[in-house]
């Protein structure tokens, strides 16, 4: 149902529009003297909040273990299909042999990425993070397909809350004391 709004009839002065124009001029004049909000971008940099969604990166845990196990959930969830993973196996001699799986290659096409953060949200290993890098560029398309080493270089090391695989290895070494 349409709602009828009662409009106050205009006074004679208001019908000339002059008071409104003067008010408008006053408002713009006040704004004229207000401090400016522009950020002088290349010289000044914005403060990046913690939950900012920048370039997706791969991270390692403080023990330098690559956290990605190439479960490919991010590849699956990625709306623009920017992620491409070649799964691989960790050799049985390696320190982290009990993790069994690690990406052989991990590519994110930054020309496709829409920074939606779904990969970070879906990651069961907390291995992919959209961190604070927001400005990337390159001279060719190939350059902007970030490979695994580039992604780890950008991601660096992030603190780990769980160390779930380390716990698992401890369990495997010491067994279950309840048994």
């Amino acid at each position: 149902m349409a709602k009828i709004v009662d409009r106050k009839p205009l006074s004679l002065l208001e019908k000339t529009n002059i008071p409104q124009i003067l008010k408008g001029l006053y408002i713009t004049l006040v704004n004229f003297f207000r401090p400016k909000v522009t950020l002088q971008y290349p010289d000044q940099r914005p403060v990046i909040p913690n939950n900012y969604r920048g370039v997706p990166t791969l991270v390692k845990d403080p023990n330098e273990r690559e956290k990605c196990v190439s479960c490919q959930l991010c590849e699956f969830v990625c709306p623009p299909k920017a992620i491409r993973i070649t799964p691989g196996t960790i050799s049985e001699e390696a320190d982290t042999a009990h993790v069994e799986k690690a990406p052989q290659e991990f590519e994110i096409n930054m020309l496709r990425c829409i920074y939606c953060g779904l990969c970070q949200e879906v990651c069961p290993e907390e291995a992919i993070f959209l961190q604070d890098i927001y400005s990337i560029n390159g001279l060719s398309r190939e350059e902007l397909v970030f490979n695994k080493s580039k992604l780890y270089e950008l991601g660096g090391v992030l603190p780990d809350k769980h160390y779930k695989w380390d716990k698992k290895r401890d369990d495997a070494l010491h067994g279950n004391e309840n048994h």
Binding site: N31, F32, F33, R34, K36, V37, T38, Q40
Partner: peptide, 10 residues
Amino acid sequence: KVAAWIQGRV
């Protein structure tokens, strides 16, 4: 310049 200042820009 005036346009910018009125609009809060530089």
